[in-house]
Design a protein around this nucleic acid. Structure first.
Length: 553
RNA sequence: AGCGGGGUGGGGAAGUCAGGUCAUCCCGGCGGGCUCAUAACCCGCAAAUCAGUAGUUCAAAUCUACUCCCCGCUACCA
């Protein structure tokens, strides 16, 4: 395992609140992975930033009568607060509009330009004579030429999902006037040049998911198209060339560069050579499947265009989208649950547990279902794990006054049980390393379940022979569980740690410590109390009702 | 249309890459047990010709071909 790592997750676009879908596919898996790496002694840093530029933000800030800078500052702060409440622990959360990123983007552009990967081309753009501005992407609305739906954006029809070549009956989305067509000079990145080297990189990188690779390689085979990297708006990274007034870089040119610029800024501030660290670390970019194109083509192509001055990613864990009660999440139809809202109902660990448990390491969509949530929390988190912790510690309290007894000689069952503890770190660890967080979590639950059986089988409450060994091993298993479960549900892990009356924080331990019998006889436990409260059906029904779509479409 | 992913007991999933030791896990149902534990926990039972058809093989949920369904993506959408 590389002892250095930089972890990023897709940047939250600074124009709305974080919802369950965001955290499920990217932020939570990234956070769990980072915590795991840190326990393994990896110098791992999880960096992220708000994605501040672009047309939708500009339009929305204009509507709200704010400057775009004010507008994104608000969302940057709010997103960070929401993430923190969910125990997504960034080492650094910055923004794409930072001076460091702007300078970095301009530098990258200059280098790509010098290397001959950029060219200028005149294109025809919509222009509004009334508002005196060019109208890229979402500034133009009209009728979808395919399904004839009215009032659709020029870059995407939400009704049929297609991308119109040219929208019918175009109107400026600001004033409603029909725009005219004007020439505008844009810069293009020669993505075409990188087909072969991208293909080679994809072939050689063994960590990338096979299905995603295949998908991207098909795109490459069908021929890449050069990429328009500029826009005629005012809110973005300025182009470092003469005669480019009123133009900025397109958001997808600058935002992923913030992975690098933010990491380097953070590391340099810490007194570490950021660039050197970047190039010697394992690089992880956690993303949702909607931005595969950008992360498997644009991002690596740009780095290749700089002769890999900054290392290409080693891992791009790509996960599917979250559906809600089997329907697509949609803010405009009120079919979504905000992260902040959810955390008002249940502890962060409930959601962390559930979202990891249902989330495979693949592009498959996953579904949030309120009833399923209640069942899994009640039966798995509480009935299995919470119950074992509570009965093991509670019993020790009752029968031995909280003092861990001296074990007797182990019988076969005890030895088998001890072996379970010794195998745990490797069993769970190998799954974690392969990014199978859901399976790793399941493995931990199996471990807990095994101990429920063991405890039952030994019947220590009858105080027969073997009682002391059973209690001794069970208490140690609780300690192992606390360490193993920490990356997933850190607050609860720490609670267990306190009930065990062990020093320090779980986060400071080594991963392999979970396979050691770290509690000796004579150790005095702390107070034992239930870790979790049940999810009540009546509550669930209430939250379900709040989901009723405000307006059917 | 192209590409990708699926169809496994009542519900939800794993297993398919490396064929046999595979039909597993969770929920639900039924019956029993325990009382340390949040009506939690433990044991047992019922229930699947692993979408269909044909093939390869001593052996197929797993490989091949075809068919029928479902879902996703398709580039400037952040």
């Amino acid at each position: 395992m590389n002892k250095k790592a930089i972890i990023t997750s897709a940047l939250p676009y600074a124009n709305g609140e974080i919802h369950l879908g965001h955290v499920a596919s990217t932020y939570l898996p990234a956070d769990v992975t980072t915590r795991f790496l840190k326990l393994n002694g990896v110098e791992a840093y999880y960096v992220c930033a708000s994605d501040d530029f672009g047309t939708p933000i500009l339009i929305q800030s204009e509507k709200e009568g704010k400057t775009p800078a004010e507008y994104v500052a608000h969302w940057n702060k709010r997103d960070y607060e929401d993430f923190s409440a969910f125990n997504i622990e960034f080492d650094y959360f910055y923004k794409t509009s930072s001076p460091e990123n702007i300078a970095f983007v301009q530098d990258v552009f200059t280098k790509l330009n010098d290397a001959g990967h950029i060219y200028e081309k005149e294109i025809i753009q919509f222009y509004c004579n009334n508002d005196k501005k060019f109208l890229p992407d979402r500034y133009v609305k009209g009728m979808c030429p395919y399904c004839k739906a009215e009032d659709q954006y020029s870059d995407l029809c939400e009704s049929c999902g297609r991308v119109p070549d040219e929208i019918t009956d175009p109107k400026c989305s600001l004033c409603g006037q029909p725009p005219t067509k004007e020439k505008s000079k844009h810069y293009f990145f020669k993505l075409k040049n990188f087909g072969d080297s991208l293909g080679k990189w994809l072939d050689e990188n063994e960590h990338l998911q096979k299905d995603v690779k295949k998908y991207v390689q098909n795109w490459i085979k069908s021929g890449l198209i050069d990429w328009d990297i500029t826009r005629d708006i005012s809110w973005g990274v300025p182009i470092p060339l003469e005669d480019t007034k009123g133009k900025v870089f397109y958001g997808w040119f600058d935002n992923h560069l913030a992975y690098i610029s933010t990491a380097i800024k953070f590391l340099n501030d810490k007194g570490i050579d950021g660039k050197e660290f970047w190039n010697s670390a394992d690089i992880y970019h956690f993303i949702g499947k909607d931005i595969v194109y950008h992360h498997f083509l644009f991002l690596p192509a740009m780095r290749l265009g700089l002769d890999s001055e900054y290392k290409l990613p080693d891992y791009i864990p790509t996960r599917g989208h979250l559906t809600l009660e089997s329907k697509k999440i949609s803010k405009s139809r009120n079919w979504y649950i905000g992260l902040k809202e959810f955390l008002g109902y249940y502890p962060a660990d409930y959601l962390r547990y559930y979202l990891v448990a249902i989330n495979p390491y693949s592009q498959d969509d996953l579904n949030f279902d309120w009833n399923d949530f209640a069942t899994r929390i009640n039966s798995e988190l509480i009935g299995n794990l919470g119950n074992f912790v509570n009965r093991a510690l509670g019993f020790t309290k009752k029968a031995f006054d909280g003092e861990v007894p001296e074990p007797e000689s182990f019988d076969d069952k005890d030895s088998e049980t001890e072996q379970k503890i010794k195998d745990l770190a490797a069993d769970v660890g190998s799954l974690m390393e392969q990014n199978h967080l859901d399976r790793a979590l399941k493995k931990i639950m199996e471990f807990s379940s095994y101990f429920n059986q063991y405890f039952q089988h030994k019947e220590p409450w009858k105080k027969g022979p073997g009682t002391a060994s059973c209690v001794f091993l069970s208490v140690n298993a609780v300690r192992s569980l606390a360490i193993a479960i920490f990356p997933f549900i850190p607050e609860s892990a720490q609670k267990i740690w306190q009930q065990l009356a062990l020093d320090g924080n779980v986060s400071e331990l080594e991963w392999n410590e979970m396979s050691v019998l770290g509690i000796s006889s004579g150790h005095i436990l702390g107070e034992a109390s239930p870790l979790f409260a049940k999810v009540e059906e009546s509550e669930i029904e209430k939250y379900k009702k709040q989901l009723e779509p405000s307006e059917e479409k």
